[in-house]
Nucleic acid binder design. Sequence first.
DNA 1: TAATTTTTTTGATAATTATCAAATGAAAAT
DNA 2: ATTTTCATTTGATAATTATCAAAAAAATTA
Lengths: 187, 187
Amino acid sequence: MNLLQNRIVQIASLSEESNKKFLAAWQTWTVTKDFFVLKENEVSNYLYFIEKGIARIFYYKNGKEITEWIAMDNSFFLSIISFFERKPSYLQIHTIEPALIRGIHYNDLMKLCDEHHEIERWLRKALTGSLILSQYRMDSIQFETAQQRYEKLLETNPSIIQRVPLSYIASFLGITQETLSRIRSSL
Amino acid sequence: MNLLQNRIVQIASLSEESNKKFLAAWQTWTVTKDFFVLKENEVSNYLYFIEKGIARIFYYKNGKEITEWIAMDNSFFLSIISFFERKPSYLQIHTIEPALIRGIHYNDLMKLCDEHHEIERWLRKALTGSLILSQYRMDSIQFETAQQRYEKLLETNPSIIQRVPLSYIASFLGITQETLSRIRSSL
DNA sequence: TAATTTTTTTGATAATTATCAAATGAAAAT
DNA sequence: ATTTTCATTTGATAATTATCAAAAAAATTA
């Protein structure tokens, strides 16, 4: 059972040849907790996939740490702007659990996209999915109360509460940890 | 001078053949003010480009009208979810000025993507750009005050104030029109 | 286990924005 | 030009969440 393979074909099926070449381009890292997958001001060279563990994508805004995304459970993650625009990342990525991470280098992905129309299509579909997610998230941030956002998170991802510190979850939801603590105690 | 052509090659250059075929697939509508480009519950069949005039993308949330986007000045717009997932749109699109709109049908775009790797790549790059924009907008909604968001809008798009009613701008910024009115009078 | 550090909770207050209601101003229609 | 309609502003109040400070609880280390 190859978890990455499964998720890849969920986005778009590939011919045997493309699939083989695509998979072969991914490397694997087994890392400890608190490992920095991406440091500030580095150009992000990889599109990542997390097979096991949790990675947190965060940045500093007015001296405060903002958690932009929490990646777990066989999902892709990346620093979109740095990866695609090839510029230093204001985002950082670090693990908050020991993790098994896979990654494909920008150059390899671009080469595969050039050589295999199917892989280009795969990436196009993956980006379409991200964009749709991003729309829903924007709507949620703009029009739902903190409590609604928290309850939704609990529904879609109950294990996150056990595995991720409150302060990160609060920041990801766009509220302070004090507010999240109060929401919790009121439920 | 072809405005659509210009914007297309800004996203990614195309060979002469692809370019010709791509351009030929776009149709043109000349519409009055208050024309519904897309009505609720229709499946959105077109990726649009506005050459002249203004279109507003909006939806209803708890009985209230929310302006999600204001398209003007040679930009692309679409109902992302409906167009790509082929399902009825909760978004509506209508013009708030007489407009010259161009559009390419979903089937034609997909066919061109299949037949021309270059056009697939073009779409992938266009989506990458949208996703980056979407990230910046999310950050802005989550961490800037209403006043900061308004001032930024004034900077990047000063003419919007003259051409778009306050209530739409307010909704687009994620605030009520009363709040925007007060921000305005305080500047 | 006790001491230390980190995380979470609680309390008081302030800032921002929403909501509801009404008044004013501007544009369109008769 | 007057009426009607629509858009914007102003006022008073309420809701939500942030901020700052401190206490309590939990986890880690000695």
